[in-house]
Design a protein around this nucleic acid. Structure first.
Lengths: 216, 216
DNA sequence: GGATGTGAAGTATTTCACAGCC
DNA sequence: GGCTGTGAAATACTTCACATCC
């Protein structure tokens, strides 16, 4: 009977749907900064994001007043504020569990580091893989999880293990003190209150698109 | 000024948020069917999905009356109906574009086929990869895209190319007649009305979780 | 008795529209 | 003049609660 706590505004006042949009604002602002754009209006941001300007202004208003009337937002200032709000102004250490094909792709992906995440450890269940170097990291045994998570101050894990091991791995991670998990297996692992989990599930995404392309 | 058309109920009456939940119902029902469960109530489904029973009943009511009062839902019947509604009762042919590490992981993933999707073609921009066999498919040159998409009746594509090529690849796919795209690059490609697109973006997922684990 | 299907009630989220400020 | 910030209005979504039916 417990309702979907993940889609419910938890402690704070800010709706989760707003939080989920902020990273997209950060991404666009980063691009504008690279382009040398100094100031941007909610109108312009909205065009780039396919969102109404009112929504952007309303979203930002949950956190303060960042703009200048008649002008717009300073790209650099707004970016800094949003990064601070999201907690990505200083980087997070991340562990990857599961070094199969998907885990290797994740470990080799260069997109995490510039955006606030450092992949600092890799683990696998199979001793065949342990000891191998992937993406600059030596794959470690799960026995070492607790120690490494503590030593490296790892709060976030990416889980890319076969579905049948996933809940168990998630439980181990939570027991070690990991507080946010990105799961690639096609289940929704159960976690206790206070632990954040997101699932990446291409099959579910495909299956909802087929509804719209089925009949025409 | 155009509002976010992807999160808006398009042609039909059914809210997109409902459509997005149906694949999860399908997944649970599949599992129940494998377990040999014949009948299930919205109560029981809700427990497994962490959703209120009322929501499940309301969601299903958009499409008809599938249950029996006092009894619940026939697992097999409900599954068949939902698969039909979603358009996954017969399989879709899917092309994968981009055979780097991520593309290889996708091509080797066994989870698409049982759930209504057949990966039938792989393409890459680089001639280094073309001709190689990955996941049982010979990687083809982009020159052949149009012909293969037509011949194989491919309506769905998975795009896993570097971000700088993504918009171009998406445009080519749409030009060939592809109608739904699952994009793994960290941008939101622009597509014309009527084309469905979903993005899988682990960085955005991580960045929204850090908000919640930042302060405690 | 027990569970569905559904209007009505209750929340949440988005958009409007305009006062206020640069 | 132009654009933000924001109450209020509008819309969307969820949950309630109960008549209805097996």
């Amino acid at each position: 009977m417990a309702p979907n706590s993940a889609s419910r505004q938890s402690r704070s006042e800010v709706p989760e749907v707003v939080i989920n949009r902020l990273p997209q604002y950060v991404r666009i602002l980063n691009r504008l900064l690279d382009d040398g754009t100094q100031v941007v209006s909610s109108q312009q941001l909205g065009e780039k994001l396919q969102v109404t300007p009112a929504q952007i202004r309303k979203d930002l208003s949950y956190f303060g007043r960042f703009g200048k009337q008649g002008r717009g937002y300073s790209v650099r200032d707004l970016l800094d504020r949003l990064r601070q709000i999201l907690g990505i102004n200083s980087p997070w250490n991340v562990a990857v569990v599961g070094v199969g094909r998907l885990g290797r792709a994740i470990l080799s992906y260069p997109g995490f580091n510039p955006d606030g995440f450092r992949l600092v450890a890799a683990f696998d269940l199979s001793s065949k893989v342990v000891g191998e170097t992937v993406g600059g990291l030596v794959v470690q045994n799960m026995d070492e999880l607790d120690q490494v998570v503590g030593r490296e101050k790892i709060s976030i894990a990416i889980v890319a293990v076969p579905v049948e091991y996933t809940q168990n791995v998630v439980d181990q991670l939570v027991a070690c003190g990991v507080r946010a998990i990105l799961n690639y297996a096609p289940i929704t692992p159960q976690v206790r209150e206070g632990i954040r989990i997101r699932n990446i599930d291409p099959v579910l995404s495909l299956q909802s698109m087929t509804y719209y392309i089925n009949d025409e």
